[in-house]
Amino acid sequence: MNPRPNPRPTHPNPRPNSRRPSALLLDALLVCVALLDLWVNLDSENHPATAYGLLAALALTLRRHRPLLAFALTLPSALIGDAAFATMAALYTLSSLCRHRTLLIGCALAFATVDFMPWPWTSLDVDELDETYSLVHLTYTLATAAAPVFLGQLVQARRELTLRLAEISEAREQEQLLSAQAVLAKERAQLAREMHDVVSHQVSLIAVTAGALQVGSPDAEARAAGATIRRLSVQTLEELRHMVGVLRASGIRPTELTPQPSLADLHQLIAVSGIETELETDLPDGLPPTLQRAVYRTVQEALTNVRKHAPGATATVRIHHRDGALWTTVANTAATRPALPLPGAHHGLVGLRQRAELLGGTITSGPTTDGGYELRLELPSDDPP
C-alpha cells in the first residue's frame, strides 16, 4: 500500500501552473545530484551497484506521486553500493507527505540497516564486529537515516501550520463580515423605523391636506393642483412602504424590488409632473432595459429640477436614436414665478453623470439663451433587433 500525499489542500495559489516548472527543475536537479553521487562512489567493476544506482536516480522522478515506491526502488543502491543520496532524498519526500509515524520509523530503520550492514551479508565477520562496526559508526548511520525523517516532518508541520493560519485568517474575516452585516442590519432597521414613523406620517398629512384642497377649494386651478399633490403623495407613500419592507427584510430573506421603469412609463411621468411638457420621440422597440432606465431617470431628474428651480416654466423632452447613439434632451423655458427655497443634497446631476459614465455615455447641462436650462444625455447604443 503506497501512502498518498496529504489530501488537505495547501495554501491556495492563484496560478497553479506557475509552480510546475520549478517542481520539474527541482526533480531534474535531484536526479543530477544522485547521478553525481553515483559517479563519485562508482566502482567500475561492480556492475549491479551501477545499475541500481541508475535506477535509484530515475526513481526520484516518482517521489511526489509514489513516495513509498520511490523509496523502495532506491534502497538497493544504498545496500549494494555507497551512493545513498537518492535514498535520503526519497525518504525525506516520503516523510514530508506521509502521516504514518510507524511506517516512517520502519523506513528509517530499513535505510539504517542496509547502510550499516556490508554487502554481501555473508562477508560479515562477527569476530571483527567491534573493530569495524563501532558504536560511532552505528550512531552515524542512525543519524543519517533519522535526519531526512525529521526534516520531512518539520516541513509537513510547517505546511499544516501555514494552512491553519490561513483558515484562522479566513474565519476572522468571515467573523468581521458577519459583524459588519449585523451592524448594517441594525442601521437599516433604525432607518426603516424613522421612515415609517416620521416620513410616512408627514407624507400622509400632505396627501390628506391635498385631498381637502381638491374637494373644498372653489378655484379650479387649485383643485387641479391639489389632485396632483394628492396623487404624487399616494404614489410616494406606496414607494416608502415598499422601501421600509425592503429595509426590514434585508439580510433575512430576498426581497423583490419594485418593477424598474422603462420608456413606456414616460407618458405617466410627464402626466403627473405638473409641468406643461412636450414629448418628442422616435425610438424603436427593443432597446436594452439599462438604457431605458437611464433615459427615464434623466427625464425624471430634469423635470424635478424644473419644478424646484423654474416654477411656471414649460419643458420639452426629445429622445432620438441615430448614428449608433441614444440622444435625450430636456429643455425648459425661463421661470415665470420666483422659486421657493427647497432642501436638496445636490446629488441629482452627479448621480446621473455617474450612471451615464457606467454606460459609456456623457451628460452635459447648462443655461440657454432665453433664460431657460437644458440637460443633454448621450448614450452609445447599437441598432435594436
Rank of each mutant, 00 (worst) to 15 (best):
D265F: 03
L55R: 03
I229R: 02
G152L: 04
P289W: 05
L191N: 11
T87N: 12
T304F: 14
A302Y: 07
V183A: 10
S273F: 04
V155W: 04
R293S: 08
V295H: 04
R353L: 00
A84E: 05
F71Q: 08
A70F: 11
H309P: 05
M88S: 12
L232I: 05
R19T: 14
F71I: 07
N2F: 02
L42I: 10
R223K: 14
R20W: 14
L62M: 14
T102A: 14
R101P: 02
A90L: 05
V31Y: 04
P9L: 12
A59K: 08
A182C: 01
L205A: 11
H11V: 15
Y140Q: 09
V199C: 04
L60Y: 06
S250D: 15
H267T: 15
D382F: 03
I105H: 01
T102W: 13
N46K: 00
S204K: 06
V136T: 15
I229Y: 02
A313C: 07
D82C: 01
N17H: 14
Q202T: 09
L163S: 11
A302S: 14
S123W: 09
P338H: 11
V234T: 05
A147M: 11
G324K: 06
V40S: 07
T258W: 03
M117H: 02
E374G: 00
L55N: 04
A334F: 07
D115N: 11
P21L: 08
S204G: 10
L287W: 06
N13R: 13
R307T: 10
Q181M: 13
Q235A: 15
A28N: 04
D282C: 10
F71L: 14
T362I: 09
R188H: 13
A49F: 02
H242C: 10
E374T: 04
G361P: 02
V234F: 09
A356G: 09
V215L: 13
L29R: 01
L237W: 03
T122V: 14
N13V: 05
Q292T: 08
H321Y: 12
A157V: 11
R353I: 01
T61M: 12
A345M: 01
G106A: 15
A147D: 02
R355S: 12
D130G: 00
T50C: 04
S96W: 05
A192E: 06
W121A: 08
T258Y: 03
T144S: 08
S96H: 06
G286D: 10
E278D: 11
D370P: 01
R101T: 15
V199M: 12
L177F: 11
L138T: 02
D127T: 09
T113P: 00
L266D: 00
L25D: 03
A315Y: 04
L104S: 06
V199Y: 04
T74F: 06
P311I: 14
T333V: 03
P218A: 08
G366D: 01
Y296A: 09
Q300A: 14
Y52N: 05
V198T: 15
R376A: 08
